[in-house]
Design a protein around this nucleic acid. Structure first.
Lengths: 201, 201, 201, 201
DNA sequence: TATGAATGAGGTTTCATTCAT
DNA sequence: AATGAATGAAACCTCATTCAT
């Protein structure tokens, strides 16, 4: 059954293109990134890329989904660990610090898409935002079930938590704070949040 | 003294170009925005724009400084009002809600610059971020002097406050929350922050 | 072996572009010549020209080398014929008359490059000048070996010969002398030169 | 009579513009030279230049006449001195060496115009060429009257002399020969020419 | 007369996309 | 399926020239 082998090959090539595309888009942004160069770096012909993606826009969107998946997996992994809510919030914070450090390119691409002007890109980036909020909301719900906290609006609170982790970390990074410094703030921030929950009652 | 009149005219034209540029850059982003179209919308000749700005890049930077100034003035105005810290935090929140609503274009331009790939743009956008933090830090310091709160690291805390207002609001807007809804969360968020300060002691 | 066919096609297209470029550059000069028009006249797309030449400057240089090659070949051919020095000098003279007539465009391009302000163009044009001198010097050397003449400095003398043929003819053409008239001066000029050699002894 | 003073002022300004124009045209060529820059260097307003010259083309032509006058004066001066023909030819040669050295810019402008593509420029440059030939022809005629030489066609011979001085020197300069070296060839070249006259009988 | 702000035509070059092989 | 040669739209920027002051 060569069909399956072909299918695997095709998927492998697709992934390879996405990887190279992510690098280029992160390095230069959507407009300045060069499709031909992406093809070249992926070791395929200029035209071949169009056998996998309809056009530059679709390639960018696919790449956006690609890095979203990867980031969400990292966040899910961090929150999957056991422990009380404060410990989990610390893990979430640390996970974002790691991502902001190691996948800063992906973050830039994602943020550009989220606040950029292209409607299609924004829609796609918003999905990741929604997923983040959903994952955090789930954790908060569990904590509520276990009686650790009591919050009025889970989704709004989840968004606050996200702002105090992801956005806070990104801003801090932009302002020049080192990964080191940020790591030491994990516990403090988690406390800040936990304490804040009192207000939500 | 015709010099002054000319000087005024010149400044007026400059401002006019910046306004139109802001609209176009917000609508299309730096790369897709068209200098010719900006000139046309500003009601001047193609070449005239280059009598006011060296090139497209410089025009963008000037516009960035322009909207930064305007936004910072709005925030400063909101915080200038008297009242205790919680009331001021509410005002800050409401100010950002208003800005996110009325100057959403400016926010998009600013965020794109902050997380985009162009180093010069990022540097300029970072300045505004720093200014925001500085303004909030000032308010926190005053509150501390008055004994309302006691925080360890003023700047880090200010950044947390900013994340829980600006970033939170922007994310909420992206997720579709109405201005109306956000306004009702001003008090809640301010409480959340005030409560969180307990953790910082 | 489709490679060879493609290679041939490519070379043919290159030559074709060079021909059209030569015509346009000769007609309008480097600055006024229009790449779009050259492409159009060559029957190819605007962008295609950049698949063969890096930019306008490189196209011009390539064309300069192209016409230099062609002119030098004509001169070499003229001097290759047997006969004593005077006969060869006559042949040289006649060859230049023919070139000045049939390839006047090339001459204009070449002279413009030689005395123009663009350093790169001048360097390239100087090469042709050097080649001319070298070819003539070779003939003089042979004549000296055969005892026909005795000259002190071969290169300087060769440059004199060149001045009395190429430059003389170009000036005469500019002053309106017909090809006809010039042809009748071949013998006279050759005699002038031969006689002049007596001075060099 | 302020009229005369004004007239003098006007002529002075004209000359000044021409001087600056000559420098810029020599430095950059007709197309690359910038009218605004010429005006600035001449210390006058952009628009003022158009009160003295109809347009860029006319300015260039005026400048061409300007440097032609100056060069011709130098050549006339060199040939005015007494002595036999050979001595005068030596003087002519030396005069061109000096010009090629000190007024190399003017020479480039002149040669570019002479062999360039602009018909109007070529016509103007040709006038100088004609003048050169006429001046030399006059000297030859005098020498013939005095019985020093006997030539068939004075004008053709004059052109030969010009080729063996001006063109020879320009070529030699392009090929890198120093002024020093060229000066030592004055006598040799004059001899070459004198000897060549024998052929013309 | 002198000025210089304003104009807009014009041209090189890039690059996403197509399509014949 | 894969390729890459060919295409041409699109845009920034310059600069000669005009004209109101």
């Amino acid at each position: 059954m060569p069909k399956i082998v072909d299918e695997q090959m095709r998927e492998a090539t697709r992934q390879h293109i996405l990887h190279e595309a992510a690098k280029e888009f992160a390095r230069l942004g959507f407009d300045q990134a060069n499709i031909n160069l992406i093809a070249e770096k992926a070791g395929i012909g200029k035209g071949t890329i169009y056998l996998y993606f309809e056009n530059k826009r679709e390639l960018f969107l696919a790449m956006l989904r690609f890095i979203a998946q990867s980031q969400l997996a990292a966040i899910r992994g961090a929150l999957a660990q056991h422990g009380n809510l404060q410990m989990r919030l610390e893990q979430l914070f640390l996970a974002f610090v790691r991502l902001a450090e190691k996948e800063s390119d992906s973050f830039n691409v994602y943020m550009s898409a989220l606040y950029g002007v292209n409607r299609a890109f924004r829609t796609e980036a918003t999905k990741l935002l929604r997923d983040y909020v959903a994952v955090i909301a789930l954790v908060l719900e569990e904590a509520q079930v276990r009686g650790e906290i009591r919050v009025r609006n889970i989704d709004t609170t989840a968004l606050m938590v996200l702002s105090l982790t992801e956005s806070f970390i990104l801003s801090a990074r932009v302002l020049g704070q080192s990964e080191q410094t940020l790591v030491t703030q994990a516990s403090q921030t988690a406390q800040f949040i936990m304490q804040g929950f009192v207000a939500s009652v």
